[in-house]
């Protein structure tokens, strides 16, 4: 379907341009993405969306994730791309798990706080412990005790 392919291409182009701009900010934290890495991250965005049965019409969350996590003491240049990719996958998965009750900013804020705090840079801890609990509480309408998020 020509229209669908054109739409995807336009979205990919926009996402690539956004990530290129991010480098200007993140380089002061010693983090930059190459063109190939940006392309891979953008491709993975669409694959992850499809795997999670979601659709995006705008620019996506990659930019927000990069800006949120670039200041993390647990993010290093050698695994920058892989960590952002994993965070993106975790993000979309838990948007579903929370029944979309959490806004993008709420979820990213929680992820960053936990990643830097209790999880101490562990993506497994973030995904398998704290986010599971957060989303369970979101589904049942409970508020997570703020003290527990750090």
């Amino acid at each position: 379907m020509t229209f669908a392919l054109e739409t995807i291409k336009l979205q990919q182009l926009a996402a690539i341009q956004e990530l290129q701009k991010c480098n200007q900010f993140t380089e002061k934290f010693g983090l930059t993405l190459t063109e190939e890495q940006i392309q891979r991250l953008v491709n993975e965005r669409f694959e992850t969306l499809q795997e999670n049965g979601r659709i995006e019409f705008g620019e996506g969350v990659l930019k927000k994730l990069v800006y949120a996590f670039c200041s993390s003491p647990y993010l290093y240049q050698f695994d920058y791309e892989d960590t952002i990719a994993a965070l993106q996958e975790t993000f979309y998965y838990f948007k579903n798990e929370s029944d979309d009750r959490l806004s993008d900013d709420e979820l990213i804020t929680f992820m960053k706080q936990t990643f830097d705090g209790k999880a101490q840079g562990s993506l497994e801890y973030l995904a398998e412990t704290s986010l599971e609990e957060l989303c369970r509480n979101a589904r049942y309408g409970y508020k997570l005790d703020e003290g527990e998020s750090l």
Binding site: F3, T7, L49, G53, R54, I55, E56, F57, G58, E59, G60, V61, Y92, K95, N96, D100, S103, D104, D105
Partner: peptide, 26 residues
């Protein structure tokens, strides 16, 4: 298709009230 796509994009922003960049395909 393009016009309908743009409308769905517009409606999805209203649905999420700008709080979410994505939504379920359903």
């Amino acid at each position: 298709q393009i016009k309908l796509w743009q409308l769905v994009s517009y409606q999805s922003k209203r649905y999420t009230m700008g709080d979410s960049s994505s939504l379920r395909i359903e």
